[in-house]
């Protein structure tokens, strides 16, 4: 059997793939968080719960309405985004002028309520969600076995992240968004309905989390706690990438997934802490994050 640095190649690539998949989820979630923080000034602690809701809505659609994976991939983000936009209109909107802490407290509370509700209804054992039949099986790449579904998750995440980045950096709509992130009252004084844009942006960030939830359902099973397991790491990713930096969030997400995967190979004991070690080091050297601008 081939080895690199004494590690079997199969194990190395297997862990790298796992890392890449985790990274795909980190990237999708931290992209939404960065977008929301930039425009709304809200540290959205409910992001993990909304991701979990995405997985649950897909599961509910399948089990109660017979809607399959591909339909769920479209319907779920719409449903969860509508929920998010109602929250924005009725609650978050009142906090924009206050300290970040209030937004954090409210969204943390919301996360507890959402998670508690699903735990009450469905317990914590987790429900299986089958891999869609088009994506079952895998390819033997010679050096490793690649389950098709996992490859699909990585590709889908890359496409979503790249698409979001292009939308924000290269379109007219994106220029409104960037301008409103800098100076919302002036953009509104030019005749643009900024409050509406804020609601839609929140909806978009939430929809990304929900899509991530649907993509995760066949991999991690559908569990009310799946969001809170992830959210702390995702916040570390956002901090490392630089609060509010879209590209930073995406690149850091994938990078840290890989770092985590590699750590699992070489020193498994540190796998769950390595991201926070990286965070501490980055904060010491570049307090604004790798891609952040000094405020």
């Amino acid at each position: 059997m081939m080895t690199i640095l004494g590690i079997p190649v199969q194990a190395l690539f297997g862990q790298l793939l796992l890392g890449l998949i985790n990274g795909a989820f980190y990237a999708m979630l931290s992209l939404g968080l960065a977008l929301i923080f930039g425009l709304l000034n809200i540290v959205n602690f409910s992001h993990g719960a909304l991701y979990m809701m995405g997985a649950f809505v897909a599961w509910l659609l399948l089990n109660f309405l017979g809607m399959g994976y591909w339909t769920a991939l479209i319907v779920t983000p719409v449903v969860v985004a509508i929920f998010g936009m109602i929250v924005e209109r009725t609650m978050l909107r009142r906090l924009y002028k206050l300290d970040h802490l209030y937004g954090l407290l409210l969204t943390f509370g919301l996360a507890l309520i959402i998670e508690g509700a699903f735990r009450q209804l469905y317990g914590i054992s987790g429900m299986p969600y089958a891999v869609p039949k088009e994506l079952q099986g895998g390819w033997n790449l010679g050096f490793m076995f690649l389950p098709i579904y996992r490859g699909w998750v990585v590709v889908a995440s890359l496409v979503l992240c790249l698409g979001s980045w292009l939308l924000i950096e290269k379109t007219k709509l994106g220029s409104y968004l960037r301008a409103a992130t800098e100076n919302p009252s002036l953009v509104q004084a030019f005749g643009i309905n900024v409050p509406m844009m804020v609601t839609l942006t929140y909806g978009f960030g939430v929809a990304l989390a929900a899509i991530a939830g649907v993509l995760a359902a066949p991999i991690y099973s559908v569990n009310p706690l799946m969001g809170s397991n992830l959210i702390i790491v995702v916040f570390a990713v956002v901090v490392i990438g630089g609060m509010g930096s879209i590209l930073g969030a995406v690149i850091t997400g994938f990078m840290l997934g890989l770092v985590e995967g590699l750590t699992k190979v070489f020193y498994p004991e540190a796998a769950s802490t390595v991201i926070f070690v990286v965070m501490a080091i980055v904060l010491m050297i570049k307090p604004a994050g790798l891609f952040g601008k000094r405020s």
Binding site: Y176, R178, V187, Q188, A189
Partner: peptide, 30 residues
């Protein structure tokens, strides 16, 4: 203020309000 602007008023603020994350062209077309 977005409705007021649409009546036909346009504003050039004292601090100029040029957006740093936008190019000159994007600022012009904003």
């Amino acid at each position: 203020s977005n409705k007021i602007a649409r009546l036909g008023l346009a504003y050039c603020p004292e601090e100029r309000g040029i957006f740093s994350s936008l190019s000159v062209r994007e600022n012009m077309l904003l």
